[in-house]
Computed example of a mutant assay.
Amino acid sequence: MCYFDHQLWPCGWWKWGSFRGQCPKEYRTGETCGLKLIYNTYLEPQVCKHCEQIYKKQRRVAKMAEDVKRWRCEGNRRATVEKTEREMMELNLQINQLWTEHEIRRHAINY
């Protein structure tokens, strides 16, 4: 039951911060007992790095979708459209994976 700072972002993402205090169960100097309690919670105003990665990928997918729509109207870029659609599918898979990791971390007690 040693005490640590705690950082919390608006999306629910969190991480442990600096060590702040030792509990009476641990008698060795500089060692922790392994149980973490929150000493202070610091609320971060900006989005977490994980969400920023997700937002960047979503903006890229939106731009690609716009390009594909425009290219289809032009009519002579079939290979480019196919390549871009494959990239969009890969990016959507990456976005889903990042959201899954985000939700797992958000609900984790001991991460």
Rank of each mutant, 00 (worst) to 15 (best):
R60A: 12
K15I: 04
W99K: 10
D5W: 03
T41M: 06
W16K: 08
K69L: 12
Q94I: 02
R77F: 14
I104K: 15
W9V: 04
K63Q: 15
E66P: 00
L35M: 06
L35P: 00
Q22C: 04
E87H: 12
D67E: 11
I38H: 03
Q53N: 12
S18L: 09
A108G: 14
T100W: 11
E101H: 08
N76Y: 14
E26Q: 15
Y111I: 07
A65H: 12
N40W: 04
G12H: 07
K69I: 01
G34W: 07
N40H: 14
E74P: 00
K25S: 15
E31V: 06
Q97S: 09
I95G: 05
N92F: 02
K49L: 07
L35Y: 07
A62S: 15
Y3Q: 15
E26L: 01
Y42H: 11
K83L: 07
K57R: 11
Y27T: 13
R78S: 14
C33P: 04
R70P: 00
R105N: 06
L43A: 09
H50I: 06
I95C: 05
W16S: 06
D67G: 02
V47A: 07
N92T: 10
R86A: 12
R86G: 03
R60V: 04
V81H: 02
Y39Q: 10
A62Y: 06
G12A: 05
N76E: 12
Q58W: 04
E74W: 14
E101I: 02
I38Q: 02
R86H: 07
H50N: 10
E82S: 11
E103W: 13
W71P: 00
L35H: 09
G30Q: 06
C48I: 05
C23N: 13
N92I: 02
C48S: 10
L98G: 01
E85H: 01
K83F: 03
E52W: 01
R106H: 02
L8T: 03
R60N: 09
R59N: 15
E66C: 08
M88C: 03
H107D: 09
E82G: 00
E101A: 10
Q97N: 10
L8P: 00
C48R: 03
E87G: 03
Q22T: 13
M89A: 15
Q7K: 14
D67I: 03
Y3I: 00
S18P: 01
C73V: 13
E44S: 03
P45Y: 06
T80C: 01
W9G: 06
G17S: 08
K15T: 12
M64N: 13
K49H: 13
C48K: 03
E52R: 13
Y111R: 07
W9E: 04
I38W: 01
R70M: 09
E66H: 08
F4D: 02
K36V: 06
R60G: 01
N110W: 05
K63R: 10
W16V: 12
E52D: 13
I104F: 09
C33L: 04
Q22G: 05
S18C: 02
R20A: 15
K69P: 00
W71F: 09
Q94Y: 00
A65I: 10
G17I: 13
E31H: 11
E85S: 07
E26M: 15
M1T: 04
E101P: 01
T32I: 11
